[in-house]
Write a protein that binds this DNA or RNA. Structure first.
Lengths: 339, 339
DNA sequence: GCCATATTTTACAACGTTGAAGCAGGTGCC
DNA sequence: GGCACCTGCTTCAACGTTGTAAAATATGGC
């Protein structure tokens, strides 16, 4: 068995509490004693038992990250960012996949194993605004995404409307007039799809361009295949357009593939912009213009808020923070400017 | 504060140990007592404190998965598979990113927080065969990948040589004669790159085709940009070939992009196969033929072995298991058969 | 050299749980 | 009717740690 404080104490010839004091850098430990204890720690290869420490102290040094699925690139990159941000503060990350199932999302908040961590960073995909009152758990929560706002928890979100508007304006600035959209969600107002579509409409409106539902393709999920299907749909119904706004990168990639198969050149015939700045958009053919929603900032802000909340669970009212975004122009919108 | 066994016991009018017995489905609890206790549990919203349970029982119900980085699609999909496999057994997964740094990889095994879990599934990328004796920790380890074998830990690996041979044979079966390779590692014998190159050579040899180092491109990392650079390199030195084996999908994707830019048609001019069966290879243009290395099986086998080892840490000698693979033909090698 | 005070170390009690062991009371067997 | 044995519950100790408070030792002033 692994060595305990008692074992170290016996070897060092002191009480086990003194060993504890050495480990926790208490003042009032004589140098000679400290040396003796450290020697014994070395000798036995002592490592503190974090479970016992957790039980005693009431916190674990871990946080839970709940997201739909790691094989979706957006969430993989989000998880990467969260783990890195957490590591900077000495926290480990425990991952729960919800598969975007409502049941699993509720279960994550209710599960006793959530208490194996000190807090939850939660990116729901099935729960919506109507579930706002169900967002609660035994630990502090920081909510990510746009599906639910005004909950009792802190919330980090991207500037969907403004960023989508900027993406659309980027296409307009390139001289494009008929901008198709893939990825809208039927009737949605408050989720990412609804908000990004709103940004799109605002951009059009500001330039005096009429919104045309005929070049907006609706989907259910935001996977590549949905982007491809939506583009098929647009082409099948004879839609004409000179630009495309994919409401996320994955949709845009699926749509680009179909465009190219159908003989359209990107960006010459159709300029395309996505949303998310996935790593892979840097390597596709053509490279995909996109919007960097500030993923690192999202992760770091979420960790910071969660830590503050863990330290002082009831101190402040719920906060809502929006991160900075950047339009990232690449080949898929290149050289198509009016000048 | 959250309710404890004692609180429930007080409400139910029994001893706290009886509550514990109810929760753990001990026999010898009268139905009426059980009902009373369950009522009290409901009433108080009692949830067991897993930290205390862990301390007492000596196991946590979590496992650690250590991998280079989640933003690399291969590892994201691996993590997805491991989390799903773990969930089937009621285990949570705690993720450590090593960034493929030797120091971090060693640190993961030495860190006291590894003991917040019952075992480690470890996919090293910096440590190599020379470090075989450093593979040890306070918990059982299951090693993934090809970099280290013959350690004291259980090991799950894919059939790199045989699978790479099958991939190469697939290209040969399509009538291709000059098969370029991107992704070789200088001087490597035992890692994924070395093994897959060996499979490639075996396939050539079996058909009496001379190995030509002039159409093998060496790289340092296995990212898309390396695949692109390697293909640039091949083209620059005037290499001629009618097929390409990317030692993983990401490399193949980077190379395909460069090929297409250079005016080559895939698969007409160059047939391409990758390795890994990443989800996204289903959606690229053209869709990428590849080798499915049995990711789900890897994850499930790793979890199973780890659980066996947790239950009986010293029972059996280290085991080494190879998973089944499948060649997945898609558009990038389509219609190029001899018939 | 002694008291007051500051420093260093110790003993004890938690944290919430489970396993071991024990104690009533009832049942079955001869 | 007495003994063994179940059933149903309880008490106690332990898992390895940290906080509190008290005890032991050292330091300083006179």
């Amino acid at each position: 068995m692994a060595a305990t404080l008692h074992d170290v104490a016996r070897v060092a010839g002191v009480s086990f509490k003194t060993v504890s004091n050495v480990i926790n850098n208490h003042p009032h430990v004589r140098d000679t004693t400290r040396a003796k204890v450290e020697q014994a720690i070395q000798e036995l290869g002592y490592r503190p038992n974090l479970t016992a420490r957790s039980l005693r102290s009431g916190h674990t040094g871990a946080i839970t990250l709940a997201l739909p699925q790691l094989s979706l690139p957006y969430f993989a990159e989000l998880a990467d960012a969260v783990i890195e941000a957490a590591a900077k503060h000495g926290l480990v990350v425990l991952i729960e996949q919800t598969g975007a199932s409502r049941e699993r999302e509720l279960e994550v908040m209710a599960s006793p194993r959530l208490k194996m961590s000190d807090g939850l960073i939660f990116s729901p995909l099935a729960l919506g605004q109507e579930d706002v009152d169900l967002i609660k758990a035994d630990v502090p929560i920081v909510l990510l995404g746009e599906r639910i706002s005004g909950s009792a928890s802190d919330h980090v979100t991207m500037q969907n409307v403004t960023a989508a508007r900027a993406a659309t304006e980027h296409l307009l600035d390139m001289g494009r007039k008929r901008i198709a959209v893939v990825g809208a969600h039927e009737g949605e107002v408050i989720g990412s799809a609804g908000l990004r579509l709103r940004g799109y409409r605002e951009a059009l409106e500001a330039r005096g361009i009429q919104y045309d539902d005929g070049i907006v393709a609706y989907v259910v999920d935001w996977h590549r295949s949905n982007g491809a299907a939506a583009m098929h749909d647009l082409l099948d119904r004879g839609a004409t357009f000179d630009a495309l706004f994919g409401l996320n990168d994955t949709l845009a990639q699926g749509a680009v593939r179909v465009l190219q198969e159908a003989g359209f050149r990107v960006p010459e015939d159709v300029a395309v912009i996505g949303f998310d700045d996935l790593d892979e958009t840097r390597y596709s053919l053509p490279t995909l213009s996109t919007v960097d929603p500030g993923r690192t900032e999202i992760a770091e802000t979420a960790i910071r808020m969660l830590m503050e909340r863990i330290k002082d669970p009831t101190g402040m009212p719920p906060r809502e923070i929006e991160t900075e975004f950047h339009v990232v122009p690449r080949e898929s919108t290149a050289g198509t400017g009016p000048a």
